[in-house]
Structure formats: structure tokens, C-alpha cells
């Protein structure tokens, strides 16, 4: 009952977002006051919908790759075989997170050239860190009694990982993915400075032509996407951790 109002609000925001992406012209009157008399109020240099989709696709691809690699690495360094890599992994994560996303992006350009690729690489590299950190934390702070019990019931190392350790670490890992996605959604806009097709194009077009309406619509679409995705992740995490009795 207490969740009803925020959820209705989210639904409304989602509906408005979809409406805006499909029929941006409907919103022209709202945006008109922000621009000079004859300037366009709705982004007209391409389809907002396709930019949004390609923005999401970029973020999704990068995050998916980052999740696979980060969780894989975290599993490795939390096994006895990989224990020697643990201290270094922790420091690398800490150091990596001090790298500004723009710097990662800019440094990727010399390696792979302009376009989607440097953006994907930057989002991937930057997205690795929070996921890796959380997966490492989640997998290395499991209650010892439970890990013991899993061994005691005769599970093999693989069964323990799949049936006990990963499910228990899942909420923490998801929190890492959520963080990573939120950062990536915003960072992807900067990708447009190196010619990636993202909503950053709308914002940059606005900055270049001094069109506040463009800046606003580009920024808001990204922000709304970020908030909705963030909330969706939080909801899943809540359900999972309530199940695991961690609340």
C-alpha cells in the first residue's frame, strides 16, 4: 500500500517518456518557451527514439560484457586458486575508480579510433569496477556457517558456487550492476563527443546551437531512464534480499 503512490508515479513517468519518444511533437508547446522564436524546440536532426535505443543498446552491451568479465574475475579471485590475485585486484579496483570516465573515453580513442568503439570500451572498463568490487565483496563475505554447511552436505565446489554462493551474493552483485548502469547511462552521453550515436548528440547539438530545449530533452530522457532503471534494479534487489532474510 505504501509503495502504491511512488509506483504510480513511476508508471506515469514511463508513459510520458514513451509518449515523448514516439510523438515528440506533442510536447512542442511545452518546450517552445525555452527557445528563440524561430529555432526548433524538438530535436530535428535525427530520431529521438532511435538515439535512445542506440544509447540503451550501447549501455546494455557494455554492461553485459562488464558483468560477465567482472563476475568471472571475482569468482576466480575468491577461489583458493586465485587467492594470490586478491590483494592486487582490490587495489586495481580502487585505482581504476579514480580514473575519470572522460579520461578513459579519451584514452580509448587513440587505441580504436572514433565512433561506438571507444564509448563501448570506456563504458566496459569503467563499468567493470563497481561490478567487480561488489561481486568480490559478495562472494568473500558469505556467512562462514553457510559455506561450511554447503561443504558439509557434500556439494562439490561447482555446486557450492552455483547453488549457494552466487545466489547469496546476487543482491550485492546486482547493486554493483545498478551502479555501473547508472554511471554508464550518463557517461554514454559524453561518447557523442567521439561520434557515438547516443542521446549525447541531442545535448551537444543544443550546446552548439545554444538551444536550451535540446539540452533539456536530451538530459531529461537520460535522467528518466537512469532513475527508472535504478528503481527497477533496487526493487529486484529488495525482493531477493528479503527472500534471503538479509533485510
Amino acid at each position: 500500500m505504501k509503495r502504491l503512490l511512488p509506483n504510480l508515479l513511476r508508471l506515469a513517468v514511463l508513459v510520458i517518456l514513451i509518449a515523448f519518444l514516439l510523438q515528440p511533437m506533442l510536447f512542442e508547446p511545452l518546450l517552445k518557451p525555452l527557445v528563440q522564436a524561430n529555432a526548433p524546440a524538438v530535436y530535428n536532426q535525427g530520431s529521438l527514439l532511435s538515439l535512445t535505443l542506440s544509447h540503451l543498446a550501447t549501455v546494455f552491451t557494455a554492461t553485459l560484457a562488464a558483468t560477465i568479465v567482472a563476475v568471472g574475475l571475482a569468482i576466480l579471485v575468491t577461489r583458493p586458486i586465485g587467492a594470490e590475485f586478491l590483494p592486487l585486484s582490490r587495489s586495481l579496483v580502487n585505482i581504476g575508480q579514480t580514473f575519470p570516465p572522460v579520461a578513459v573515453l579519451a584514452l580509448a580513442v587513440p587505441a580504436v579510433g572514433f565512433g561506438e568503439k571507444p564509448t563501448l570500451i570506456a563504458l566496459f572498463l569503467y563499468g567493470l569496477l563497481p561490478i567487480f568490487e561488489n561481486a568480490m565483496t559478495g562472494l568473500s563475505t558469505l556467512p562462514p556457517a553457510i559455506v561450511e554447511a554447503a561443504r558439509g552436505t557434500g556439494m562439490t565446489a561447482w555446486q557450492r558456487l552455483i547453488k549457494v554462493e552466487l545466489p547469496l551474493a546476487l543482491p550485492v552483485i546486482l547493486a554493483g550492476i545498478r551502479l555501473s548502469v547508472t554511471i554508464s547511462l550518463a557517461t554514454a552521453t559524453i561518447g557523442s563527443t567521439v561520434a557515438a550515436k547516443t542521446l549525447g548528440e541531442v545535448i551537444i547539438a543544443g550546446l552548439q546551437s545554444n538551444n536550451l530545449a535540446f539540452v533539456l530533452q536530451g538530459g531529461l530522457v537520460v535522467a528518466v531512464l537512469a532513475v527508472l532503471i535504478y528503481d527497477a534494479f533496487s526493487a529486484v534487489e529488495r525482493v531477493l534480499s528479503r527472500r534471503a532474510g538479509r533485510v
Binding site: T189, I190, G206, L207, L212, L220, A226, Y230
Partner: peptide
């Protein structure tokens, strides 16, 4: 929290006006 989700280039731009 919501402010944090606005991409930086957009927030910079929005403050111009």
C-alpha cells in the same frame, strides 16, 4: 539522488540559462 542521474553535459548546459 535524482540530480546525480542527470548526465553532466546536460546539467552543465541546463544551468547556462
Amino acid at each position: 539522488n535524482i540530480i546525480q542521474t542527470i548526465p553532466s553535459i546536460a546539467l552543465f548546459g541546463l544551468l547556462i540559462a
